[in-house]
Amino acid sequence: MSKHHDEREEKALRSGFSRRGFLKGVSVTSGALGSAILEEDAQAQTAGRLFGPSAVPITLNINGADQKLTVEPRVTLLDACRNHLDLTGAKRVCDRGTCGACTMIVNGKVVYSCTVLAIDVQGKKIQTIEGISQAGKPHPVSVAFVNNDAQQCGYCTPGFVMAAKGFLDRNPNVTTLEQVEKGLGGNLCRCGTYVGVRKAVLEAAKAMKGGRNA
């Protein structure tokens, strides 16, 4: 531990901020984990703000509908969708926020759902690949991916489609390959479908501007 840091810790202690002291006013949760850092006699005023570690009921707004489920706080948005809601379009590949196969759109922005806690996105609008088709009609980005053979094994494809949709929603005037490459810099494919993906995104940009945006 750095000297600097040791000093800070000491300072915290000197200021009378003992473990027992600072935990006053923080509620108790049951279970060995909670009690390890929480005082038994702490007050309950923040009880509504502590959850778990065992499974807790949560509500996720996915594709426009509220979904109620019971998960531990450690469950990611991706695993909640895949293991609890049977929304398996988003894929678990690197599981460390690098490859983009798990991409979802949360409040209008693309995110790696493997690196988001499910409990953390309550009250937000979550869009998955399952939710972008409208009335059974595939989204123009999905159509463009098929038209340009922007897929092989297809395991990265839902993530790419979501990343492309999120990108085009925010940048409807995309016209160059360079823009597409920058916009999709957070997704990886192993089969090597990028040639098709580049064309697909440009085609989708045109189609979406033509009023076919979902």
Binding site: F17, L23, G25, R49, L50, F51, P53, S54, P73, D120
Partner: peptide, 21 residues
């Protein structure tokens, strides 16, 4: 991932109080 308790503090003061020493 090991199980943990998730805290959603309402104020900065509360957040600080929820951290460990």
């Amino acid at each position: 991932m090991q199980a943990f308790e998730y805290a959603n503090p309402a104020t900065l003061q509360e957040a600080v109080a929820m951290l460990g020493s």
